[in-house]
Amino acid sequence: MAELPQAVRGFWVTFATMFKKVVTEQYPEDSHKYPTQPRFHGRHQLNRWADGLEKCVGCELCAWACPADAILVEGASNTDEERFSPGERYGRVYQINYARCIFCGLCIEACPTRALTMTNAFELAEDNRASLIYEKQDLLAPLLAGMQLPPHDMVPGTTEQDYYANRVKGPAAVEGEVQS
């Protein structure tokens, strides 16, 4: 090898690389092949209880924890006619400004009802700043089977304590004994 001209030695590197495994990830075509880690901090989601009521109580602790001041929450009272969450209070306004959010996850740590969690979604680029502000309807988790779109009543015979203790398992199904 030593006596070969320098140029040929150089091309050998190129030639040998042709037989190596390709490291390039074909994003976006093959993006399913390269999932993020489950712990990846992506876009937020506002979760629901098993019957579809919102977990968020509008306590604003996420907004308080946010180092970038990217969250705006305004609470309001549930009424018997219009109930969005178990208990007295729900988040009437919920906005996250993704032009400021740094995905640090402190809001998730602060949430007392596990209403706010993070998904792995990250394709967030937009051509204007206003669309980077996600409203409550953009952040709420989709309705799964058995969930009803709020406003609706709590499962009959339950209190908000049953929800917080995770004893409500669906629109009518309640696990174990329910507090009276």
Partner: peptide
């Protein structure tokens, strides 16, 4: 003022 705001903001 009920549920209008929190003191820290």
């Amino acid at each position: 003022y009920r549920f209008r705001s929190r003191p820290f903001d």
